[in-house]
Design a protein around this nucleic acid. Structure first.
Length: 511
RNA sequence: CGGGGUGUAGCGUAGCCCGGUUAUCGCGCCACGUUUGGGACGUGGAGGCCGCAGGUUCGAAUCCUGCCACCCCGACCA
């Protein structure tokens, strides 16, 4: 009987399946990956474009990126770096000058071969003009070391020209086989610093300085705890002598490389013949670093804090820190509320708080509440006729979802204090998750068990060989994320081969 | 590049196996009215080269062939 009814309902298409579909987000525990994709789109951060693997970053998402940029840019400049801009195109021959570098990037380069289109003679439309073939193909930069070092050759003559501390904000293209919004796109935005130094020490110090800047930014602004460490040889940047990194841990227990800073030794100086005359009058190759963070940080931000209701943004990066929503029955009420709200807005702005008064009458309060939760606005104020009478307002935290009625007189100090609280709370929550997800193991059984049932970082001894690293990766999909910088030296046996080891390293499955 | 899948309105979809009136439903959109302290309701309306190109047929969203695009899983990667 019920089968028959269902059949009839189905026939008539009145069975109510997707009713809620458009509103509710997939839950993290149901499908973390799907949750992430939906969230990025629904919160208006970015969307897929008509170009394979390339995204459109929408205004709200771009506003967050701009805040990241502003803060990082400030830190770079405070430490003596200047911005410049180098070409998008790199002659193919440049790329091949540093052997390891080519190996690393050759497989994922977009190549420009022609410079003109024309109408096909058979009228079938636009075609590439075969007569307009480039003498030398151009690579769309996957990173700019080569073009920059080719330039530095002309800029550097003497120790007086050093150090050369340059950063550029740019887009790069890496033809990835599988892409995901922010985490891995064929084109992405980033900054890349490229510095030249007279001594090895100075260059190493530079790499470490930048790593500290990245770590501090991640923790203070993104509220994302990171582990500073060194990459193993096989995970190292193509062409680097040493790669420093910061590694974050996402809510699903997978690690994410959030930034890298490379000590390049003299590899690029030698490949591009960049020499300087020292104080002592000797000709020497310069020492180099390069370092970068990308729009991938946006993905990290989303995956570190957000929940099943939507985005959760740390106040230090939220484009809107406070949203004010009026509740009213008619225009007179809205006018009365607006008068009070505008005073509050003014005072908050004076304190540098970014606040939005959403007085649109085309949406209802409930809809707005849900919307700003989805967008992760840290604080929401609601004010209605009742509040107006009593001199109060309702204020809600996005991180704890806690609602409170406070006096209008206290709003500025409350907002300032609470934004700070939220920033700290988000960091501490993430830190707690991270710290409880670093598991020390001493046998390979434990190793696999933790990866499978708990996830997160696995701290284990390793014999230091590429072969072991490779085998562990094949068997478990976990890679060595880093050798932490502050590691304690401790005798031990490799978790896989039993070989000698002097310190533990961090393994994890990674994005 | 290997394996799997999907293309129907802005989005999510039904119909396809078994070809046949005007292509279904929900969300969203537009208008008007009532509403507004947690995703409103009613009435009316607009919106479709059914991925593209061929073929079969009196007739194709539906069957056949080719192509294209996208998604998921692997290998690669920030």
């Amino acid at each position: 009987m019920s089968k028959l009814i269902f059949f009839l309902l189905k026939r008539c298409n009145i069975y109510a399946k997707p009713l809620i579909m458009s509103k509710k987000l997939t839950k993290r525990e149901d499908d973390y990956s799907k949750w992430y994709n939906e969230l990025v789109v629904k919160a208006d951060l970015a969307e897929n474009s008509g170009v394979r693997g390339c995204m459109v970053i929408k205004p709200y998402g771009y506003a967050i990126w701009e805040k990241m940029q502003a803060e990082l840019d400030k830190k770079f400049k405070e430490t003596g770096h200047e911005n410049a801009y180098f070409p998008l195109f790199i002659p193919k021959s440049f790329l091949s000058k540093e052997a390891a570098h080519v190996d690393g990037f050759a497989k994922e380069c977009a190549v420009v071969t022609h410079y003109r289109l024309k109408n096909a003679e058979d009228g079938s439309g636009l075609i590439v003009d075969p007569d307009a073939k480039l003498e030398e193909e151009l690579i769309v930069r996957p990173t700019s070391e080569t073009i920059i070092w080719d330039t530095y050759r002309r800029w550097i003559e003497s120790y007086r020209d050093l150090p050369l501390l340059i950063n550029q904000w740019a887009n790069v293209v890496r033809w990835e086989m599988r892409t995901r919004l922010f985490l891995r796109t064929a084109e992405f935005l980033w900054q890349e610093g490229h510095t030249a130094h007279a001594t090895k020490n100075e260059a190493v110090t530079e790499s470490e300085l930048i790593l500290d800047i990245y770590a501090e930014f991640a923790e203070k602004y993104m509220a994302m705890p990171v582990i500073k460490g060194l990459k193993t040889e096989s995970e190292r940047f193509a062409g680097a002598v040493e790669t420093y990194c910061i590694e974050g841990l996402m809510q699903d227990g997978k690690a994410l490389q959030a930034g890298t800073s490379h000590f390049l030794g003299q590899n690029f100086a030698k490949a591009f013949d960049v020499m300087f005359t020292s104080k002592e009058g000797k000709r020497e190759h310069v020492w180099a670093t390069s370092w970068g963070v990308s729009t991938r940080l946006m993905g990290a931000l989303v995956m570190t804090h957000s929940d099943d209701l939507g985005l959760v943004l740390p106040p230090n990066l939220a484009p809107i820190q406070v949203v004010i929503i009026p509740i009213h029955r008619n225009d007179e009420q809205l006018d009365a509320i607006s008068v009070k709200v505008n005073e509050i807005v003014k005072e908050l702005r004076k304190k540098g708080v970014s606040v939005k008064f959403d007085n649109r009458t085309t949406y209802k309060p409930g809809w707005k509440f849900a919307q700003y939760e989805l967008k992760g606005v840290p604080l929401r104020i609601a004010m209605g006729p009742r509040d107006l009478e009593e001199g109060t307002l309702e204020i809600a935290r996005r991180d704890t979802l806690e609602k409170k009625s406070i006096s209008q007189d206290d709003v500025v100090s409350y907002v300032e204090k609470t934004l700070e609280d939220i920033q700290n709370n988000l960091f501490n929550k993430a830190l707690d998750y991270r710290d409880t997800h670093i598991t020390e193991v001493n046998t390979f059984e434990e190793f696999k068990d933790v990866l499978e049932h708990k996830a997160g970082f696995v701290s284990a001894h390793w014999d230091g060989t590429k072969e072991t690293e490779e085998k562990i990766k094949d068997l478990t999909k976990a890679t060595i994320r880093c050798i932490p910088l502050n590691n304690k030296i401790e005798e031990g046996k490799c978790v896989f081969t039993g070989g000698k080891s002097t310190q533990r390293v961090l393994f994890a499955k990674a994005y």
